[in-house]
């Protein structure tokens, strides 16, 4: 049992991150925390890809090192995905700044109240 878990530790960590991220996105009342949850969720996926590239005893895929290499492609993909994630975070935070300027709050409940009383 323990060995089975230990052999899949990356995947377990991945799905823990996905779970935590989803939970924070849904449950957090603060808009910034929601964005943090989103980041955690994405990190889980990054880890998933990178873990899949791992080869037992593999070297980094650089020409001067000896094989076997770990798979380079997922690394490249995730590099792209990280860039996308950064851009998303930036846009999200930009919106949050505007929301705060408009309503003076970042709490979802308060925001709802303010908008209803408009």
């Amino acid at each position: 049992m323990i060995e089975a878990i230990a052999a899949k530790d990356y995947y377990i960590a991945t799905f823990l991150l996905l779970g935590i991220g989803t939970y924070v996105m849904i449950a957090a009342g603060n808009l910034v925390k929601k964005v943090i949850g989103m980041n955690i969720f994405q990190t889980g996926i990054f880890l998933f890809f990178i873990a899949s590239a791992y080869v037992e005893g593999g070297n980094p895929p650089i020409l001067t090192t000896e094989g076997p290499y770990v798979s380079p492609l997922p690394h490249v993909l995730i590099l792209t995905a990280i860039v996308v994630g950064v851009a998303l975070t930036a846009v999200a935070l930009g919106m949050i700044v505007r929301i705060y300027a408009e309503y003076g709050t970042l709490e979802e409940d308060t925001l709802q109240e303010v908008r209803h009383s408009e």
């Binding site: 989803t22 996105m25 808009l31 929601k34 964005v35 989103m38 969720f41 994405q42 996926i45 998303l88 846009v91 999200a92 919106m95 949050i96 505007r98 929301i99 408009e102 309503y103 925001l111 908008r115």
Partner: peptide, 19 residues
């Protein structure tokens, strides 16, 4: 004010879907 609020909701849900 409702634009950024709607957009943020769109962003979070949309990113979840894309992920």
């Amino acid at each position: 004010g409702r634009s950024p609020v709607a957009a943020l909701k769109y962003l979070i849900v949309g990113t979840f879907g894309a992920s």
